[in-house]
Amino acid sequence: MDIKVFGEFKKKVKENVGKVIVGKEENIDKIIVAFITSGHVLLEDVPGLGKTKLARSLSKTMGCTFKRIQFTPDLLPSDLTGIYFYNQKDQEFEFRKGPLLSQIVLADEINRATPRTQSALLECMEERQVTVEGNTIKLDEPFFVIATQNPIEQFGTFPLPEAQLDRFFMKISMGYPNYNEEKSMMERFMESDPLDTLKSVITLEEIKYVQNNYCKVHISDEIKDYILNIVVATRNNTDIELGCSPRVTLGLMKGCQAYAAISGRDYVIPEDVKALAVSVMAHRIVLKSEINVEKDKANNVINLILSTVKTPIETI
């Protein structure tokens, strides 16, 4: 495994996406990690913070096919997966692809759709396939879902069930830009939209290489124990009704391997775990009802667990 390939991959993606998205480098790193590990990302933030532009710029950077789905209450599962229709000219049924049969899919305002439609995403996100009228269709590789939801609106929305939240590898909040970033944004978008001229800088061979080799990054027994102790702590915490599942354990381990690789290391350190833990774990725990009303409470609970679980120290 050539660790330099991962560094170049990260550099090219961030430089290209950075032509459109100002700042947010930490979030872009996390999205790169999710992409490498074939995970999916849920972006939760108020409107107008660049969630859609981030998804579009990432698809152009990777040279992948891209579809945006605007989720609404009247959206049907067949609107996502596609349908078989009867072609009168050829006198046979033909399959018309839905937007899910793309490499990068933006599910915009996912919590506006009904649970029935939301569930249509489950099979494709987990199994990398869709089933239409009994026929199973494999999705193209890579396959990456970026879903967005607005956290401040409640009327006309259908909160994602825990089973579907668990399918998202990470939940990220973009946040407002600072003063200098927003001023730079004004200058950059004054005459034209840089997204219109964005070119692909990543080849399919590079994508396959990073996705097939990140798992070769070394992770010691001490780091494995550290990850497991954090996950187990969520199951014994008095503020948590339902702790993290083994799927989270495996996801955090793989995410740390990818994060270490794009950081130029072929081994995982505790700081990799701390960098990803909140984004990977917070949306996958269920808090007790009496404390669930507090804003960012899940994030605070995970941060508290990180501060109490003993960090392994390298022995020289």
Rank of each mutant, 00 (worst) to 15 (best):
D166N: 09
G251E: 02
I227N: 08
R188A: 01
I285L: 03
E181R: 10
A147S: 05
E222N: 07
D79Y: 08
L204W: 09
D108L: 07
Q88D: 04
F168V: 01
N27A: 08
V293A: 03
S184L: 07
G23S: 11
E8D: 15
K310C: 08
K310Y: 07
L106I: 09
V5H: 02
K60H: 14
N303A: 04
S119A: 11
S173R: 06
L252G: 04
Y179E: 06
A163M: 13
G82K: 02
N303L: 11
G82V: 01
A261T: 00
T249A: 05
R56W: 09
T117L: 10
D221I: 12
V17M: 04
P115D: 02
E187N: 14
I285V: 14
F93I: 03
A163Y: 05
M62E: 14
E290W: 10
Q164L: 13
I83T: 13
V286W: 13
S173P: 02
D225C: 01
I305S: 04
L242D: 11
S173H: 04
I69P: 04
K224Y: 07
I202D: 09
R56Q: 15
K254N: 14
Q70E: 09
Q91F: 06
F95N: 10
E133R: 03
K288M: 12
V293E: 00
G23Y: 05
N27Y: 06
V201K: 04
S59E: 11
D296H: 10
K60W: 10
K30F: 08
S192T: 13
Q154L: 00
T148M: 05
V301T: 11
E181Y: 11
E123T: 12
E94K: 15
E25N: 14
G251I: 00
N292K: 12
Y267D: 06
S78H: 12
F169C: 01
E187P: 01
R284Q: 02
P194Y: 06
E8N: 15
T234S: 08
V130N: 03
M281F: 03
F71A: 04
K199S: 13
E133W: 05
G18R: 06
Q257V: 00
V33F: 14
D239Q: 12
V33T: 13
S263D: 14
T61G: 12
M170I: 11
G255H: 12
E44L: 00
K67Y: 15
E153T: 00
Y226I: 12
N237Y: 10
K53C: 07
R68N: 15
P99T: 14
E153K: 00
T197A: 12
M253P: 01
K171L: 10
F144P: 00
S263N: 15
P270R: 01
I32Q: 04
V293Y: 03
L101F: 07
A277V: 12
F66Y: 13
G48T: 00
D272P: 02
E109L: 01
E241L: 14
K288F: 10
I207E: 09
V232F: 11
K97M: 14
L250A: 04
M185L: 15
A147V: 02
T148R: 07
M125D: 08
